[in-house]
């Protein structure tokens, strides 16, 4: 099993520190979901874990070794990343884009081979994008496009997969579809997954391990049923809420209170 962890990790852009002295470990073979308010450093943490940012202090360890000390291509065979806003080149076909996922497995002397075809076909089958193979990525709907990008990440055949807000701009149907797909992958192949997610309820439902961040620090982590409490929602998001069991999954579900339309929370109506 691959392990990915940070030790006393500090990350920032130029002079600005975004993540401060942070130690986390992604449980191997599980789905970890990182949540937090906007600008809490959750995407920055993910980029740091994916070796896209050089730490200002501390280390990121992949299989117990400093990730920056290893060749980036070697890392790319083990650790895949789907960034927040990837851009598809003009006019590229779905099959070709998915094929780009094979980049770290190729080189000057190892050109495209049957193994690459297999990986691309398997990735497109897993994401249900086979019938799109010949289409231009430009022509696809948001949900289809996101499935194609995930297929590219799958074609990379990594044991660890990091996804930065993979459901942004998707309607609720496609959000569920993407998270189900990632869960399939985790269940079927034991892929270690880390996702940055906005939606707390979906995070609570799909995470094996939830990491809640605020102002560059981890406030709480663990199974969602332990972590998600009314107190935590208030601490992390500054939001008053009720937490009830999700009627579908039994996981915690956060119901915001807000200033209007409230009948006193869990109290019965006075009328």
């Amino acid at each position: 099993m691959r392990t990915l962890q940070s030790r006393n990790l500090t990350l920032g852009y130029d002079q600005r520190t975004v993540v401060q002295d942070l130690t986390v470990e992604l449980p191997a073979g599980q789905v970890s979901i990182i949540v937090g308010a906007n600008a809490c450093g959750k995407s920055t943490l993910l980029r740091g874990l994916a070796r896209l940012l050089k730490p200002t202090a501390g280390t990121v360890m992949l299989d117990g070794k400093d990730i920056h000390a290893r060749s980036t291509r070697e890392v790319a065979r083990v650790l895949g990343l789907l960034p927040q806003t990837p851009t598809a080149p003009d006019g590229i076909s779905v099959a070709e884009l998915v094929g780009r996922g094979r980049y770290p497995h190729q080189g000057w002397f190892r050109q495209w081979a049957a193994k690459d075809d297999d990986a691309v076909n398997a990735a497109m089958a897993a994401t249900d994008t086979e019938e799109l193979a010949g289409r231009d990525v430009d022509e696809l709907s948001g949900g289809q496009r996101q499935r194609v990008w995930i297929a590219m990440a799958l074609a990379q055949e990594t044991d660890i997969l990091l996804l930065d807000e993979p459901t942004t701009f998707l309607d609720v149907t496609h959000q569920i579809e993407v998270l189900d797909l990632v869960t399939d992958l985790n269940r079927r192949k034991g892929t270690t997954v880390a996702i940055v997610l906005h939606d707390l309820n979906l995070a609570a439902r799909y995470a094996d391990h939830l990491i809640a961040m605020k102002a560059g620090e981890v406030v709480a982590e663990g199974p969602p049923s332990d972590v998600v409490t009314e107190q935590l929602v208030s601490d992390v998001f500054g939001l008053e809420s009720r937490v009830i069991p999700d009627p579908v999954s039994g996981t915690p579900m956060v119901v915001p209170v807000g200033r209007h339309h409230s009948n006193g929370g869990s109290m019965p109506s006075a009328a």
Partner: peptide
């Protein structure tokens, strides 16, 4: 040219694929 094919997906995606 190989790196260029990675870079055209965006810097983060390219880095994720192992492009320096």
């Amino acid at each position: 040219s190989r790196s260029l094919r990675g870079l055209e997906l965006g810097d983060d995606a390219a880095a994720g694929l192992g492009v320096r």
